[in-house]
Amino acid sequence: MNKKILSVMMASVMALSIAACASEDEDTAPVVLSGGQTAESAEGSGAQEAGETAAASADAYVFTYNGIEIRMNAPANGIIEALGDGYTYFEAPSCAYEGMDKVYTYNSIVVRSYTMDGEDYIAAVELKDDTVATAEGIRIGSTEDEVRAAYGEDGQPGTAGIEYTLGDSFISFIFENGKVVAITYTAIVG
C-alpha cells in the first residue's frame, strides 16, 4: 500500500519535472552574459567564410569591393581580414554588453558588423563615392530612372529614397534632385 502511495508521489514529481523540460525546444537559453565575447570571434577562417559568402549570394545582396564579396549577414571576420588593413575602426558596445557594433571605414565604403552569439556578421555596407558601383551598375550620381531600370519598379518607396529587398537583406538608394546621393546595403537580422 505504501509503495503505491510512494509511486503516486514519485509520478507527480516526475510529471512536473518532465513538463518543465519537455515543452522546451532544445535550443539553449538566451544569451544574457555575452559581454566581451566579440574578441573571441576573431578566430574565424577568412578564406572559408569568404567562400561561403559567394555560395550564398542568392539569399541576399552581395557587394564586391576590391574583388572581395561582401554578403549581408555573412560572418564578418574573414571578409574584414580579406579587405586588408586600410580602414579606420570604431566600436560601440550594445546596452548591457549584448553585443558590439563595429564600423570599418575604407576609402570608398563603410562596413558595419553586429555580434550574435559571440560571432560578428555583416550588418551593412555603405558606398561613399562614385568610384564604386553595385553589381547592377548603379553608383552615386546615377539617376533615379537608372535605378528603376536596373532594379525594377517594385521597390519600397520611402521618404528619402527607395528600397529593394532580397532574402535577408535590402538595398537603399537615397535621392536628391533625381540623383543617387547614397547607397546602402543592409542585413535583415532575426
Binding site: Q156, G158, I174
Partner: peptide, 14 residues
C-alpha cells in the same frame, strides 16, 4: 568622448 562614424543614410525616416 571620441569621434563617431557618420550616420548611415536611410531611404525612409518615418
Amino acid at each position: 568622448e571620441g569621434e563617431f562614424p557618420a550616420p548611415m543614410p536611410l531611404a525612409d525616416y518615418t
